[in-house]
Simulated scan of single mutants.
Amino acid sequence: MTWHTKKLVAFDTETTGVDVESDRIVTAAVLEIDPLEGGIVRHEWLINPGIDIPAEATAIHGITDAMAAEGRDPGEAVAEIALHLGAAWMEMTPVVAYNASFDLTLLDRELRRYRGEGLWHGSVIDPLVIDKHFNRYRPGSRKLVDVAKHYRIALSEMDAHGAAADALAAARIAWTQARWYYPEISRMRLPELHANQEQWHAEQAASLADYFHRQGRHSDADSVSLDWPLRPAPASKAATA
């Protein structure tokens, strides 16, 4: 059997913002999906991030400071999330994450912040990287809700930006890509697919940085990371790992 016909684990977060070095996880979901059994085991967290949630972030995911105050201790929660992902990787099960370098890097920084060590990872499948590789010149948004629509996956604007709904949509996109659109990725062994995505992401990021340079947006270009699925930690954070 190929990887997409076996168990998949999907991961997504909702956060206080988009800066992986300073923002925090507010909600997270890890879904264990078994295509053969047709079942989904859901693990979900509401986390007290320890900082204020900006209004613009609340407008996206709907979590207010008052709601988050009832959430889990962040150190305990991120350790549990890492345990679930680590268990999948130890079983050689891939973790599906849309725009994986954001969610996994943010989790890594949270682990360093609260537990003193970073995230170990195995094979990752990122439907965004795959989509950009095979549809480089397709116009339009690459947001999850729009890419889901392209692959005929049900995810309404109302459902989007909930961690569990987004994680499930990402897994369904990955399955659809492998089953119907790009069967060559279904024939790749997981280490090969992971390595290919590292290369594809680096090429995509280099192209974006080049675009920014040509637009005179040099600071934006300098902020683009070629690394996937984890961005390197700054020296101060790396020292705590």
Score class of each variant (00 low, 15 high):
1 M>A: 15
2 T>W: 07
5 T>V: 08
6 K>S: 12
7 K>Q: 09
8 L>M: 14
10 A>W: 00
11 F>H: 08
13 T>A: 06
16 T>C: 06
16 T>G: 08
22 S>Q: 04
23 D>I: 07
23 D>E: 01
26 V>R: 05
26 V>T: 09
27 T>E: 01
27 T>M: 05
28 A>G: 06
29 A>D: 07
29 A>R: 00
29 A>T: 04
30 V>S: 06
31 L>M: 12
34 D>L: 05
38 G>T: 09
38 G>P: 08
40 I>Q: 05
40 I>D: 00
41 V>Q: 07
42 R>W: 08
44 E>M: 03
45 W>P: 00
46 L>V: 02
48 N>M: 04
48 N>R: 05
49 P>E: 02
50 G>V: 01
50 G>D: 01
51 I>P: 05
52 D>T: 11
52 D>R: 12
53 I>L: 08
54 P>C: 01
54 P>D: 01
57 A>C: 06
58 T>W: 06
64 T>H: 03
68 A>V: 06
70 E>T: 15
71 G>M: 00
73 D>Q: 02
74 P>Y: 04
75 G>C: 07
76 E>Q: 15
76 E>W: 13
80 E>A: 15
83 L>P: 12
85 L>C: 14
86 G>Q: 02
86 G>V: 00
90 M>Q: 15
91 E>I: 03
93 T>G: 08
94 P>C: 00
95 V>M: 08
97 A>V: 14
97 A>L: 03
101 S>G: 07
101 S>Y: 11
109 R>C: 02
110 E>L: 00
111 L>P: 10
112 R>E: 01
113 R>C: 01
115 R>N: 07
117 E>G: 10
118 G>F: 03
120 W>F: 13
120 W>E: 07
123 S>W: 14
125 I>F: 06
126 D>T: 14
128 L>F: 13
128 L>N: 10
129 V>R: 05
129 V>L: 08
131 D>G: 10
132 K>P: 05
137 Y>N: 14
138 R>A: 09
139 P>G: 09
141 S>M: 04
142 R>E: 00
146 D>E: 14
146 D>I: 06
147 V>A: 02
151 Y>E: 01
152 R>S: 15
155 L>E: 05
156 S>G: 15
158 M>K: 12
160 A>H: 02
161 H>I: 10
163 A>H: 05
164 A>V: 12
169 A>T: 13
174 A>F: 13
174 A>K: 12
174 A>V: 15
176 T>V: 07
177 Q>A: 09
177 Q>V: 08
177 Q>N: 10
177 Q>C: 13
186 S>E: 03
186 S>Y: 05
188 M>A: 10
188 M>V: 12
189 R>Q: 13
192 E>L: 10
195 A>Q: 04
196 N>S: 13
196 N>F: 06
198 E>Y: 06
200 W>S: 04
200 W>P: 13
202 A>N: 01
205 A>F: 07
205 A>K: 05
206 A>W: 09
207 S>R: 14
211 Y>I: 06
214 R>A: 13
215 Q>L: 11
216 G>P: 07
217 R>Q: 14
217 R>T: 12
218 H>S: 08
220 D>E: 15
220 D>K: 15
222 D>L: 10
223 S>W: 00
226 L>V: 12
227 D>N: 13
227 D>L: 09
227 D>W: 09
231 R>E: 07
232 P>H: 03
232 P>T: 04
233 A>W: 00
235 A>G: 08
235 A>S: 12
237 K>C: 04
239 A>T: 04
